[in-house]
């Protein structure tokens, strides 16, 4: 029970990271390998704002989100849109975008290493305990989880119940047909890429309230996000959320029952199982 609750609390932040990636890949068709760096950059921003400006990390999201939106919009419009225009087919865009974002990964990681060095960072926010069903959990983890639920819920309502959100899903389903209903595909793609960046950055902020981070851990989170996205089915927000919770529980169970050093091994084990038995994702349909 304790493992499940701890795992679910961890899964909340994972869900945001994966949902961010799945929106970027599903709508803007960019497999963003620098997604982990977006997350770490957001951790550092939150850390810096908390330490020097005394800004509450949860409220800090409202400052980080617009910044992440603008930055990701610019990255898409200046760097990635030319690749989209040039690509003759999906495979070509996939290769190009992986190479381009791989470059962004090293650029961002390098900048953060220069700025903060290689040490581990953490800060103390709401580090008191809160008791659920007789067991104490970090209050920061609970608050981060609740914030993640709120953000994901808002996003879900936006995507399913507003005209613009429906347009975003239409581009995900069929970009060519989206043009036929007067959707500006380039603009909606840029918006989706920026939105995905915001969700990922929010995940980073929440993660930093209870997690020890350093400048070069981004790639681990990119892998985790990729695993969750593939497990949940590419472009499937609901699938990503469930897969994130499963991953959170699996990692916590491994760390508690076997050995903390094996969490990444457990992650990959799960990944291999999914690839072997449900390559289309937990809820995906067999493609025809």
């Amino acid at each position: 029970m304790e493992i499940i609750i701890t795992g679910i609390l961890l899964g909340g932040a994972y869900a945001l990271i994966a949902v961010g990636l799945t929106i970027q890949y599903g709508v803007a068709r960019i497999m963003n390998l620098a997604t982990g760096e977006t997350l770490v950059a957001s951790c550092f921003c939150t850390f810096w704002m908390f330490n020097s400006l005394k800004i509450n990390p949860i409220l800090g999201i409202f400052l980080i989100a617009p910044a992440a939106f603008i930055l990701n919009w610019a990255i898409y419009s200046l760097l990635l849109l030319p690749l989209v225009r040039r690509a003759k087919n999906k495979a070509m865009l996939e290769v190009d975008s992986i190479l381009a974002t791989f470059g962004i990964l090293f650029l961002l990681e390098g900048l953060m290493l220069v700025g903060f060095g290689g040490e581990y960072f953490s800060y103390s926010f709401l580090s008191t305990s809160y008791t659920i069903a007789g067991t104490a959990y970090g209050l920061n983890r609970i608050v981060a989880f609740l914030a993640a639920v709120l953000i994901t819920g808002t996003l879900y309502v936006f995507l399913t119940h507003t005209r613009y959100g429906t347009s975003v899903r239409a581009v995900a389903v069929d970009p060519a047909a989206a043009g036929l209903v007067a959707i500006n595909v380039d603009r909606v793609s840029a918006f989706a890429f920026a939105l995905g960046g915001v969700v990922t950055a929010a995940g980073g902020t929440l993660l930093s309230t209870f997690y020890t981070f350093n400048a070069s851990m981004g790639v681990v989170f990119t892998m985790k996000a990729l695993i969750i996205v593939i497990m949940g089915g590419v472009g499937d927000v609901r699938g990503a959320v469930i897969a994130a919770l499963i991953l959170g529980i699996a990692e916590t169970a491994t760390a508690t029952l076997i050995d903390p050093g094996l969490t990444i091994a457990a992650t990959y084990f799960l990944f291999i199982l999914i690839l072997l038995f449900r390559p289309q994702g937990l809820f995906g349909r067999q493609t025809t």
Partner: peptide, 18 residues
Amino acid sequence: GVFGELSVGENLKLGANP
């Protein structure tokens, strides 16, 4: 060129997007 993964209602609503 319809949106297969969306509902009939959503497809029609998108039609009124202009």
